[in-house]
């Protein structure tokens, strides 16, 4: 009896506030836009019965997404931006994680804390911090002008470059932590064995360290890629008007155009795209958990 209550309370909560809303999104994505409030048709009416209700639904909005190049361009550019920034984050994050794992034992808790600290600070503030740095009269341009690399301020803020910087910066800890965890577990004698068997330091790194930290790399990449794909704050603060990211499109579709059915369709397609990396990620985590047994 108690067990039933224990299961039912969180279960019912998640059903009502996670699953049901989601079904509503799917349903509205199949509805037609209307100038009413709520701005979509049909609304469910028990009197007319479920058959009549369902017959009103169609895939019109999804068809619309394919006809307007804005949408597929936005999906494509979101994927590109997420993918490229994941790779950049990996290139920056791996050396940091490696350095942490190689640092003296007594430093590690401090380094770990320094990586985790940004986790707890406001995401919005961390993105905002870059606005002052990247603007045409910002610190980066001042610095570059001062050392004489450039003589005209670069336009970085409100371009895709700024979006890359923002994503790499905010998601760096997500990349470093799993890789560090993998490297930390790595038995140092394995590398010594590899060197003993004739590997150079570099080839020992390629043949032993990288393969053994593979799970950490994969986990880190997914942890950056998945949220980056649906990112809204970074493109809207650091990106320009031509920066197309699907999170931003959805937001504008909803708040500016008030086209709820299309916004819902955008959301459904985004989720369908996300299902692939999420499932892959889950599988990787499971495999790792099993390997650790």
């Amino acid at each position: 009896m108690r067990r039933l209550v224990l299961i039912l309370v969180p279960y019912a909560w998640l059903l009502a506030l996670f699953l049901v809303p989601f079904i509503i999104v799917v349903k509205i994505s199949l509805s037609d836009v209307a100038l009413a409030r709520p701005p979509y048709l049909p609304q469910f009416d028990w009197a007319e019965g479920i058959g009549a209700f369902l017959s009103e639904l169609d895939f019109e909005n999804f068809v619309f997404l394919t006809t307007d190049s804005l949408y597929w361009k936005a999906y494509l550019s979101s994927l590109t931006i997420a993918l490229v920034s994941t790779l950049i984050t990996l290139c920056i994050g791996y050396p940091i994680a490696y350095g942490m794992a190689r640092a003296p034992e007594e430093w590690r808790p401090t380094l770990m804390m320094l990586i985790i600290l940004p986790f707890w600070t406001s995401f919005l503030i961390r993105v905002y911090a870059w606005m002052g740095i990247l603007s045409s009269e910002g610190f980066l341009n001042q610095f570059l002008l001062w050392i004489g690399v450039i003589d005209q301020p670069l336009t970085i803020l409100n371009t895709n470059s700024a979006v890359y910087i923002g994503i790499v910066y905010t998601y760096l800890p997500f990349m470093v932590l799993p890789i560090y965890a993998a490297l930390d577990r790595l038995d140092g004698s394995l590398i010594e064995t590899a060197e003993d068997l004739g590997c150079s330091r570099l080839s020992a790194f390629w043949l032993v360290t990288i393969p053994l930290s593979r799970n950490g790399i994969i986990a880190g990449c997914f942890l950056v890629f998945i949220p980056a794909l649906g990112e809204f704050v970074i493109p809207s603060l650091l990106g320009g008007s031509d920066t197309l990211m699907i999170g931003k499109v959805l937001w504008e579709e909803f708040f500016s155009n008030r086209d709820w059915p299309v916004a819902s369709a955008v959301a459904v397609v985004l989720l369908l795209i996300l299902v692939v990396p999420i499932v892959l990620f889950q599988r990787n985590q499971q495999k790792q958990a099993e390997a650790e047994g």
């Binding site: 998640l14 059903l15 506030l17 996670f18 699953l19 809303p21 989601f22 509503i24 999104v25 509205i28 709520p38 998945i226 949220p227 794909l229 649906g230 990112e231 809204f232 999170g247 959805l250 937001w251 909803f254 709820w260 916004a263 819902s264 959301a267 985004l270 989720l271 996300l274 999420i278 990620f281 889950q282």
Partner: peptide, 19 residues
């Protein structure tokens, strides 16, 4: 349902709850 919200883009969570 426990794990999905962790990877769900905030825009989708927000939109669905609003609806």
């Amino acid at each position: 349902m426990i794990y999905a919200p962790l990877v769900m883009p905030e825009v989708i969570t927000g939109l669905s709850l609003l609806l």
